[in-house]
Amino acid sequence: MTDGHFRQISFTINDRERRLRVDIRKSLAEVLREDLGLIGLKQGCGVGECGACSVMVDDVLVDSCIYLALWADGKQIRTVEGEARDGKPSKVQQAYVDEGAVQCGFCTPGFIMATTSFVEKCKGKNVSPGDIRKAHAGNLCRCTGYQNIFTAIEKSIESD
């Protein structure tokens, strides 16, 4: 691998500044997992179909598997690892636990980020069941039939 493949970038990851030499061919998912050890995000397809790799980039939910790491230069990134604070889960995380919205858990980190982004965006607004469903349609879950995830999302909105 020649040096031509690398570029220096910097971004904020879960509130911490990082400067990093990244392989320009790598996706953000790969850099987060392999270079930063942030293994919370999962990959179920690698091509933007399943949403397991969802993270927030400047408050926008993205599939990190199809987002080049390079594009994150100068941006704010949030991953599932940053959501629990002071030994406490976020409200969204707690709602997923309480509502039985987790089974195998492989889709869960992506869903947690999707719901977090949705709840923050909808603050103070009325949301319909249809809004909830649409906002999470890019995240696939094969275990739950989305039923308990739906109630966890509703609860996250209420408790916010």
């Binding site: 942030l38 995000l41 997923y96 858990g105 492989f106 869960t108 947690i112």
Partner: peptide, 20 residues
């Protein structure tokens, strides 16, 4: 609640790919 729910919602649950 599931015994493993908290590990899963926090992204700390390790799956095969997470062993380095």
């Amino acid at each position: 609640n599931r015994v493993d729910a908290m590990a899963k919602v926090t992204g700390r649950a390790k799956y095969t790919e997470d062993f380095y």
